[in-house]
Design a protein around this nucleic acid. Structure first.
Ligand SMILES: [Mn+2]
Ligand SMILES: [Mn+2]
Ligand SMILES: [Zn+2]
Ligand SMILES: [Zn+2]
Lengths: 140, 140
DNA sequence: TAACTACTTTATAATTATTCTAAAGTATGT
DNA sequence: ACATACTTTAGAATAATTATAAAGTAGTTA
C-alpha cells in the first residue's frame, strides 16, 4: 500500500544519491523537512513531536535520531547550538548568519553581513568559515 | 584552620558584592577561575575534575554546578555553546568573538573585528550584541 | 560567646537528551 | 522468490544536568 506521488520521487532521489535507502520513514521525514520554502530550525525532539502528532503509525525516537544524523552526514542538514544543552539542526546548509531572539532563530543570508576587519588565522591554520550571531532584545 | 592570604581577600569581596556568601568552596573555585591572566573556557565537568584532582577534600558535583550558576547569574561568567550538548563557560564576560579550532576555543577581542554591512534588527527588536565565530581548520 | 536563622553543601535520586543493543522488518540485487 | 545487508524499533544504557532533603556553616544578635 505505497502512496507514490511525484513529490516523493524528489526525496527518493535525494536519499538514493546520498547512499541512503529511501525507506518510508526517511521519505516522510525528508518531505517534512525539505518540502517548505523557508529554512527550518529544529531539535530532534521537536521534529518527532510535530510529525508524530499527526500520524497513527508513529516513527520511533531512534529513527528520528538516526535519520537526522544520516541527513547531516550526507550534507543535507547542518547542526548548530543555542545555549541550552540540545542540538539544533538547520535545513539551510549554506554558510549563513542568524538572529537569536529568545530561542527563536532567523536566518541572515551570508551577503547581508560583510567585514571591514577580520583577524588572520593562527599560523598553521586557515579559516573554514565565519558565522555571526546577532542577539536581539525587545525595543525599550 | 583557615588559610587567609591577601589573594583570597579579593575573591571574598567579589563574592560578597555579588550577594554570595564567601564559603570555602566558592572562594577556591573563584580563585581557580579568575586568578589567571588569560581567559578560561571550560565545562563544569572539566572544572570539577581539574580542581578535585589536587584536593584531598573533594568539592561535590552539585556545588560546582551551583557555584558556576551563581557566578553566571552574578555576571562573572558567560555561558556559550559548541556543537555538542554540553554547556561551556567563559571567564571573559565582555562581548567578544572566538576562534573554534576542533574543540579548542580562543578569544578574539571585540575590536579585532569590524563590520562593513550589518542587517537592521526586525521591527520591535533591537540588537543586544553581535558575536562572531571563526571556525578553523588545518592548513593544506 | 551562645543561640538563631538563613543560606550552603552534599550524597543521592531524578530528569533530559542522546546513544546503544539486539531482535524483527524491509529494500535491493540475483 | 532468496539471500543479504541495511533499517527500524523498543527498551536499556549513558552523559549532562537538576532536584531533594538532610547535615553543616556563615552572618546576626543577645
Ligand atoms: Mn546530552
Ligand atoms: Mn542536558
Ligand atoms: Zn539557519
Ligand atoms: Zn571567550
Amino acid at each position: 500500500m505505497h502512496k507514490m506521488n511525484s513529490k516523493n520521487k524528489t526525496f527518493i532521489d535525494k536519499l538514493r544519491s546520498s547512499g541512503l535507502r529511501p525507506t518510508n520513514q526517511r521519505v516522510e521525514i525528508s518531505k517534512f523537512l525539505f518540502n517548505r520554502k523557508k529554512t527550518f530550525h529544529f531539535t530532534v525532539e521537536e521534529l518527532k513531536n510535530s510529525m508524530n502528532l499527526k500520524r497513527s503509525k508513529k516513527i520511533s525516537t531512534a529513527t528520528f535520531y538516526n535519520t537526522v544524523h544520516a541527513l547531516k552526514s550526507a550534507g543535507h542538514l547542518k547542526e548548530f547550538s543555542l545555549e541550552n544543552n540540545t542540538s539544533y539542526y538547520d535545513t539551510n546548509i549554506k554558510s549563513h548568519h542568524h538572529f537569536f531572539d529568545n530561542g527563536k532563530v532567523i536566518d541572515i543570508r551570508s551577503d547581508k553581513i560583510t567585514f571591514q576587519k577580520l583577524p588572520d588565522a593562527p599560523k598553521g591554520k586557515k579559516i573554514k568559515n565565519v558565522e555571526v550571531v546577532i542577539r536581539l532584545e525587545n525595543n525599550n
